[in-house]
Design a protein around this nucleic acid. Structure first.
Length: 790
DNA sequence: CTCTCCCTT
């Protein structure tokens, strides 16, 4: 064979599946090298030629699947289809800015198909949320008149419908990110659409960084990044000045009214209900239409609900219905928002209604301008959840919720100049979160140092250090920040690093069964429902599994009970049972799915769970491997000064790193605070709360925390009876003494000094002592001291 | 005496 055949073959690669072309190109390079050394390559060439042939046939088969593309008539993106097509042909990257109603989410994948994408590889389309991924896929499939799961498929955690004939695959951004592990080139895609990039979740930022590096290695890959806000220059600059296309939205104008809460800042909380009632009255006078009110949390919602129920809302337009809406609400209560209704509705919502759920039929919005924002404080090493003024972008998003049906009105319960002073955008998650999981992934995928990774926003050095500190605590990296064998294992577990560490301890200590249950239970949202108006009944039902020394064992008890029921009950009966026991069926199912998934990972490796139950201590010691940074000692002084009679005074704890904390009232341990406490989570809101707790034995700490303990040796002294030099040692974990004044052999610690003391106190002391004894022998006896009392 | 919202090998 000649060099001509080699180049002829390599020119054919552009007609192969993207999945194959990279491997085949590598193969051809190898053959070229062989040929240059004068080695025979005939057989290799024949094989490659056959593979190319097969791959091209697969491409043709996919081309035959192309559906007739029909567009939803007059959506703004569709009207500018030609431009998008041209941009896709000309450029590798396109930034598309399209606001609500532009049609970008549903129409772009179809335009990509029309541009000839989706044949050599999949068109991958990512969504930030699972529900959205599924519904977007269903919608596109419907518009293309094909059944979901064939030409248009979707994939989210635990479920999905994708087949060999899938051309468009809609998935969560988390799925695409996870695929990098098994396919670093993302070679099965010929096009990627990263939707809702303005949300700037950790997944999106990680993907955009990764894709920047990937694009040069995948010249045939096209990327579309979409954003609903106008600040797309950042994205463009990130991708070396990629073209930007802006498509208008399809929304109605929203009139802004500023009605700041009267009174000074300290009184805001008190005056907010008043301001809310005034706003409701003002909007009620405008005419019919539902009102959506945004709050920072459940508490504000409940206060507002109470105030509204007492308040005579003008009723000439029919009854007014008040509905709370937040993520923790039971599925049935959430569903009420989507039911048809007469009269006026006032929906009191948290941020769920800002992006995750679209409440239908909203004509008016009232915005308190506040939200709870999670931030990881690297300095304190703790996660905070504080109420903050929302950004301008978030405020616009909230207001936009009443501009979908017709012109809307939004009342902001803050001043216009307050709005003007706010940050333009919400800080991206990567600047607000604990980076341990990100860094663990980067280490395991060998992506180099975080500082060099092309993140849109570079994380702060202190955040990076805090993340490495946590990874060291978990023994996932060593002192030099090198990934350990344990770290490599940890990176393959799709759970929080602390929780993953527990599972690995469970594997080692023969309590994998228990760890899989507890860790999956800690990962999903708590399935125990506690509706505000039926808290007592709920608590009563949950008491069946309650363990007052360990919330973890409560979880385990709930699981065992449920598994027993599930074994002989139909799905419908199980659902009813959940309802009766104030459990969320959906979350119980999530728990089981995650448990199943984690279990599967171990089974693949041939590791199986222990069959015999283990002692509670074994379970808690395995948990502790992940929670060494969340240990605390009861503050005894406080207990003395505040007698137990005063029940309102909460028992305070002294945690590691000097943190003061208290047991969260949702914990079963709140009434029986143990001396030593271990918490799955520390969260600072009004104060630092320890959530999901267990009483522990401090003796477990030393063997598990050897790599973290600092030792302080004091009072070396000669011991007359043993004839040795002894001292006391105090071991501290992050500044918290965990072993107090334990006698140790000083010679093993500081042999030279021990020898000095031996001579000084032992030898000379013995002489001195001998003198004393001699003295006493010749002098009159002194009176014996009376025994000590009390 | 209480905690916004998402996502995964």
């Amino acid at each position: 064979m000649t060099a001509l055949d080699l180049s002829a073959l390599s020119s054919q690669l552009d007609n192969c599946l993207t999945r194959d072309s990279h491997a085949l190109r590598t193969r051809l390079h190898g053959l070229k090298r062989r040929a240059s050394k004068g080695l025979p390559i005939d057989k290799g060439l024949l094989e490659v030629a056959a593979q190319i042939e097969a791959s091209q046939q697969a491409v043709e088969a996919r081309r035959a699947l192309l559906p007739t593309i029909r567009y939803a008539d007059d959506l703004p993106v569709v009207l500018r289809r030609e431009e998008v097509l041209a941009a896709l042909t000309k450029n590798q990257v396109l930034i598309l800015c399209g606001e609500t109603g532009s049609g970008k989410t549903t129409q772009l994948p179809k335009i990509a198909l029309e541009a000839g994408r989706g044949v050599r590889g999949l068109i991958g389309h990512t969504q930030p949320r699972r529900i959205a991924a599924r519904s977007v896929a269903a919608r596109i499939a419907e518009e293309l008149d094909t059944p979901l799961g064939e030409k248009v498929g979707y994939q989210v955690r635990f479920t999905g419908q994708v087949s060999d004939s899938t051309l468009i695959k809609v998935m969560t951004d988390g799925i695409l990110l996870a695929e990098i592990h098994s396919d670093p080139l993302l070679s099965k895609y010929d096009t990627l659409i990263i939707d809702e990039a303005h949300e700037r979740s950790l997944n999106i930022d990680f993907l955009l960084g990764y894709l920047k590096r990937l694009l040069p290695k995948r010249p045939e890959l096209k990327l579309i990044v979409t954003s609903a806000t106008l600040d797309v220059e950042r994205f463009s600059a990130h991708f070396d000045g990629a073209d930007i296309m802006s498509v208008e939205g399809r929304t109605y104008p929203v009139e802004m009214r500023y009605r700041p809460v009267q009174g000074d800042d300290d009184d805001r909380d008190r005056d907010l209900p008043r301001a809310l009632l005034d706003a409701v009255d003002e909007l009620a006078a405008e005419g019919a239409g539902d009102i959506l009110v945004f709050f920072d949390g459940e508490r504000g919602i409940r206060e507002a609900e109470e105030a509204l129920r007492k308040h005579p809302v003008p009723r000439h337009l029919g009854a007014t219905e008040i509905l709370p809406l937040y993520a923790r609400l039971s599925a049935a209560d959430q569903a009420r928002v989507f039911q048809k209704h007469g009269g006026r509705r006032i929906i009191l919502a948290t941020n769920v209604a800002e992006t995750s759920l679209t409440v239908p039929g909203i004509r008016y919005v009232i915005d308190t301008g506040l939200a709870r924002v999670s931030r990881f404080s690297a300095h304190a090493g703790i996660q905070r959840l504080q109420v903050e003024p929302i950004s301008q972008a978030a405020a616009r998003q909230r207001a936009g919720r009443c501009g979908r049906l017709g012109p809307g009105i939004c009342i902001r319960l803050y001043a216009e100049d307050d709005f003007a002073k706010r940050p333009a955008h919400t800080d991206p998650e990567i600047l607000r979160t604990n980076l341990a999981a990100v860094i663990l992934r980067m280490e395991s995928w060998q992506l180099g140092h975080v500082d060099d990774f092309p993140f849109l926003d570079k994380p702060d050095g202190r955040q990076i250090k805090a993340a490495y500190d946590l990874l060291f605590e978990l023994q996932a990296v060593d002192e030099t920040r090198r990934l350990s064998a344990l770290g490599a294992q940890l990176s393959r577990l799709p759970v929080d690093p602390r929780l993953g560490r527990m599972v690995l301890a469970g594997e080692r200590d023969g309590c994998l069964a228990e760890m899989l249950v507890i860790v999956s239970g800690l990962t999903v949202q708590d399935p125990r429902d506690r509706p505000p108006e039926r808290q007592q009944a709920a608590d009563q039902a949950h008491a069946a599994w309650k363990n007052t020394t360990s919330d973890f064992l409560s979880l385990l008890a709930l699981w065992r009970w449920y598994e027993e029921q599930a074994r002989h009950l139909s799905q419908a009966k199980l659902r009813g049972l959940c309802e009766k026991n104030f459990l969320s069926y959906v979350r119980m199912r999530e728990w089981r799915s995650l448990h199943q998934e984690l279990r599967g990972l171990f089974h693949e490796e041939g590791v199986h769970e222990n069959e015999a139950p283990v002692s509670e201590d074994v379970v808690h010691r395995a948990l502790m491997t992940g929670l060494l940074g969340h240990l605390a000692l009861r503050d005894e002084e406080k207990r003395k000064t505040n007698p137990a009679k005063d029940k309102r005074e909460m028992v305070s704890y002294q945690g590691v790193k000097g943190r003061k904390l208290a047991i969260h009232p949702g914990s079963a341990l709140v009434k029986t605070p143990p001396k030593w406490l271990m918490s799955a989570q520390w969260l600072e809101t009004t104060r630092v709360w320890g959530a999901m707790n267990a009483a522990i034995n401090p003796r477990w700490i030393e063997p598990l925390a050897k790599h973290l303990l600092s030792r302080e040796v004091s009072e070396p002294h000669y011991q007359l009876d043993s004839g040795r030099v002894a001292a006391f040692e105090t071991l501290s974990l992050y500044g918290l003494p965990v072993v107090l004044r334990r006698a140790v052999n000083y010679a093993a610690i500081d042999p030279l000094d021990a020898r000095r003391i031996f001579i000084l106190e032992g030898v000379l002391g013995a002489l001195e002592g001998w003198e004393v004894v001699a003295d006493q022998a010749w002098s009159t006896p002194s009176p014996q001291p009376s025994p000590a009392r009390g």
